[in-house]
Design a binder for these strands. Structure first.
Lengths: 150, 150
DNA sequence: CCCAAAATAGACATAAAAGTCCTTTGAAAA
DNA sequence: TTTTCAAAGGACTTTTATGTCTATTTTGGG
């Protein structure tokens, strides 16, 4: 819940695409190898991302997946929404049908806090941010030498 | 992940116990009915909470479960730890064996943020806080009239 | 035009989580 | 002491999530 394995795969794939630079076209096979996501499972995930219009797909020879929108526009929230488990956060943790307003369940205040901090994080983190942070980090660590893992 | 159904059940059960007042002894059957947790499943959950010493159990006729420690000491983090899925947060979201320090994965900074805000929430929220907030809320809403749901 | 590469689609398989059932053990009350 | 209630423990089942396989469609290249 909140973030499952499939969600993480989606985040990985999108992040990887974003790191390949503007409009890079990457095949599912390549993506799967580089991100270590089971290839057939990845293709299911990619379809959802295509439907949500976060990526564009190119069928046939030389095809693949591509981000065509500005990276700033693609947030973690958007990716999670595309994977379709938003409703999880909306259910009352105490199992009440009606919870909130005048009659919040005992867990309601705490749950709301969690929810808003989670949504805050997810909505403020976009692919551009991830990319910049990572590129900067690679630059800094290249100054110190050392090998890149994996 | 982060918080699964079983975790939520544990939070519900502990919260319910905390609301019953100091040292209330509640049977598994009662707990299950009031919290709407499948009774046999609940008893498994309670065993874990007993082992973690968050509650004490009383076997035999008239037995049940009881919180004997100060409510301030029992945090959501403690409850989640008792349920045993702490390791989830520690794994690299990008699937790298070694991630962090000199060579963080592209998702590392964002993931760390999420982790620390989640842990901050879980460790700062304790049963006393939940109880007080709820009691206060009930008082306030009683002034306005209206029925309690569920 | 035909072949190969690559996404799409959906059926199938496996693993993990959630839930149920049955037996045993312990303690209180009759 | 016997009965009865309730936790402990474990085997089993069901459901959901994850992963695999096999075809079908689409597209570019020879």
């Amino acid at each position: 819940m909140l973030v499952n394995q499939t969600d993480i795969y989606a985040l990985r794939a999108m992040t990887f695409l974003a790191l390949q630079g503007a409009d890079a076209l990457v095949s599912s096979k390549d993506l799967a190898e580089k991100t270590r996501i089971p290839s057939h499972y990845l293709s299911k995930i990619m379809r959802r991302l295509v439907e949500a219009e976060l990526v564009v797909s190119q069928k046939g020879h030389g095809g693949g997946f591509q981000i065509v929108r500005p990276l700033e526009e693609i947030t973690i929230e958007g990716i999670l929404d595309a994977m379709g488990d938003k409703h999880e956060l909306e259910k009352c943790a105490f199992g009440w049908e009606k919870c909130g307003g005048e009659h919040p369940c005992p867990l309601h205040p705490a749950w709301s806090e969690l929810k808003s901090s989670f949504v805050g994080w997810a909505s403020s983190t976009n692919l551009s941010k991830l990319r910049n942070a990572h590129i900067q980090q690679r630059f800094l660590s290249s100054l110190g030498g050392g090998d890149l893992p994996e």
